[in-house]
Amino acid sequence: MTESSLPGGSVNTVVRVGNTVRRTASARTPYVSGLLELLETAGWDGAPRHLGVDEHGREVLSHLDGHVAWEPRQPAAVSSDASMVAVARLVRAFHDLTAGSALAADQEVVCHNDLSPRNTVYRPVGGELRPVAFIDWDLAAPGERIHDVAHVCWQYLGLGPSVADAADAARRMRLIADSYGLGRRLRRGLVSTVLWWQDRCWRGIQAEADAGDPAMRRLRDAGAVTEVRTAYRWVSDHRDVLERALG
């Protein structure tokens, strides 16, 4: 069957073949396939189905129809308050399904670890685009609930210098925490976890690029390290505003 490249992939080569997606397998593939099978068994529709390995050794996943928000400019509905509520509830749903599982090991849950609009499928719900599923589970691993919630705040709200109103970003962080059901004790650490992610991200790209990883070199050369460091400084500068809103 004809293969067509899918947009947005900056690390792995991803193609569509019919109603399937083919991705280069890695050492992470067995863990990710086990996670997707757990979510399928639970009847959760917020992730693709793992369909095995093809004749080229690539993992085969079901293709999820819908709008994937990988381009910089998006319909307003993608970043609306209603979509933030829906994203938070989707994250809570798969966290709850993985809590206590063997895949979560000694951690609270399994975290996606790369939640962003570019890894989200949107479909019309009540006449407006809303998030209905997550893709690109390659980085999924045991972790803490707050890790994914903080990543959602960073990526879906675009926390950084492009934010025009820090107070409104703070309000929307509160909305995400409330919609997820993040307890008061945990939300006190939400901003510091955003900063942890940003610091970890730019340092990881830099280190792997220096070690010769071609995908990380492309990211670094495209300005990713500078972009994330700038976002880190913005969150640091507005930390008080963000934390006060979380209560």
Score class of each variant (00 low, 15 high):
97 L>V: 07
98 T>D: 14
99 A>C: 11
99 A>H: 09
99 A>F: 02
99 A>Y: 06
102 A>R: 15
102 A>H: 13
105 A>Y: 10
106 D>L: 08
107 Q>W: 10
109 V>W: 09
110 V>C: 02
112 H>W: 02
112 H>C: 01
115 L>K: 08
116 S>E: 11
119 N>E: 04
121 V>D: 05
122 Y>L: 05
123 R>Y: 02
123 R>Q: 14
127 G>A: 06
129 L>A: 09
130 R>F: 08
138 D>H: 03
139 L>W: 12
141 A>I: 04
141 A>D: 11
142 P>D: 12
143 G>Y: 06
144 E>N: 07
145 R>W: 03
146 I>Y: 07
147 H>N: 03
148 D>Y: 07
149 V>T: 07
149 V>Y: 07
150 A>N: 06
150 A>H: 02
151 H>Y: 06
152 V>Y: 02
157 L>E: 02
157 L>S: 01
159 L>V: 09
160 G>M: 01
161 P>F: 02
161 P>M: 03
163 V>C: 00
166 A>R: 13
166 A>H: 12
166 A>Y: 12
169 A>D: 14
170 A>C: 05
171 R>P: 04
171 R>G: 02
173 M>K: 08
175 L>N: 10
175 L>E: 03
176 I>G: 09
178 D>F: 01
180 Y>F: 07
184 R>G: 14
185 R>N: 06
185 R>W: 03
186 L>G: 04
188 R>P: 00
188 R>W: 02
189 G>I: 05
190 L>P: 13
192 S>F: 11
194 V>W: 00
198 Q>E: 05
198 Q>R: 06
200 R>L: 15
202 W>G: 10
203 R>F: 11
203 R>Y: 13
204 G>L: 02
206 Q>N: 03
206 Q>I: 01
207 A>E: 15
207 A>W: 15
209 A>F: 11
211 A>N: 13
214 P>D: 01
216 M>C: 08
216 M>D: 08
218 R>F: 07
219 L>I: 00
221 D>V: 01
222 A>Q: 14
222 A>N: 11
224 A>Y: 10
225 V>Q: 12
